[in-house]
Amino acid sequence: MDNSKGLTGWGVHQALWAYTGSRNFASSPAAAQMSVLHQVGVDFPRTWLSGGNADPLTAIQSRPLAEKLRGLEVDVEEVFYPEGYTPALAHEYQFKLETAAAREALQSMLDFAHRVTQ
């Protein structure tokens, strides 16, 4: 998130400075604690993850988290889209239920919730 540009980048930088108390937030102890990726262990609960192919957080957060969870043998269900998928799926794509990808993600999440609560 530290590489965000424009107005979004400015907002991200201001928020992370506020959250961490440091202008150099990326190397702060607080920033290291903010990422779930660095906090998971074998007792992490079963997890459903998704990310759009145009969401920059998918590559740096969601996919690495899914990989780490699989390595820890945590039950993880994931819905990711290939780089060339069209239309491109931005952050929070799953809330645009008029799209096929959002409906697919919703059904996957419901199936996962049903499976893990039975």
Results as ranks from 00 to 15, higher is better:
Met1Val: 08
Met1Ser: 14
Met1Lys: 15
Gly6Thr: 04
Leu7Asn: 04
Leu7Ala: 12
Gly9Leu: 09
Gly11Cys: 13
His13Pro: 04
His13Phe: 02
Ala18Asn: 11
Ala18Lys: 12
Thr20Leu: 01
Gly21Asn: 07
Ser22Thr: 12
Arg23Ile: 14
Ala26Thr: 14
Ala26Ile: 12
Ser27Lys: 15
Pro29Asp: 07
Pro29Trp: 04
Ala30Asp: 10
Gln33Ser: 15
Ser35Ala: 12
Leu37Pro: 04
Gly41Met: 05
Val42Asn: 13
Val42Tyr: 03
Asp43Val: 05
Thr47Glu: 02
Thr47Leu: 00
Trp48His: 09
Leu49Gly: 12
Leu49Met: 06
Ser50Tyr: 06
Asp55Asn: 02
Pro56Ile: 00
Pro56Ala: 06
Ile60Ser: 15
Ser62Ile: 05
Arg63Tyr: 06
Pro64His: 08
Pro64Thr: 03
Leu65Ile: 03
Glu67Pro: 01
Lys68Trp: 11
Arg70Asn: 13
Arg70Leu: 11
Gly71Cys: 04
Leu72Ile: 02
Leu72Trp: 10
Glu73Phe: 02
Val74Trp: 08
Asp75Gln: 06
Asp75Ile: 06
Val76His: 08
Glu77Lys: 02
Glu77Gly: 03
Val79Phe: 11
Val79Ala: 13
Val79Lys: 09
Tyr81Ile: 01
Tyr81Ser: 03
Pro82Asp: 09
Pro82Cys: 06
Pro82Gly: 02
Glu83Arg: 15
Gly84Arg: 07
Tyr85Trp: 08
Thr86Gln: 14
Ala88Cys: 09
Leu89Met: 00
Ala90Cys: 06
Glu92Gln: 11
Tyr93Ala: 00
Lys96Ile: 03
Lys96Trp: 01
Ala101His: 02
Gln107Glu: 10
Met109Cys: 10
Met109Phe: 08
Met109Ile: 01
Met109Gly: 09
Met109Asp: 05
Phe112Gln: 01
Ala113Phe: 12
Ala113Lys: 10
Arg115Trp: 11
Val116Gly: 04
Thr117Asp: 01
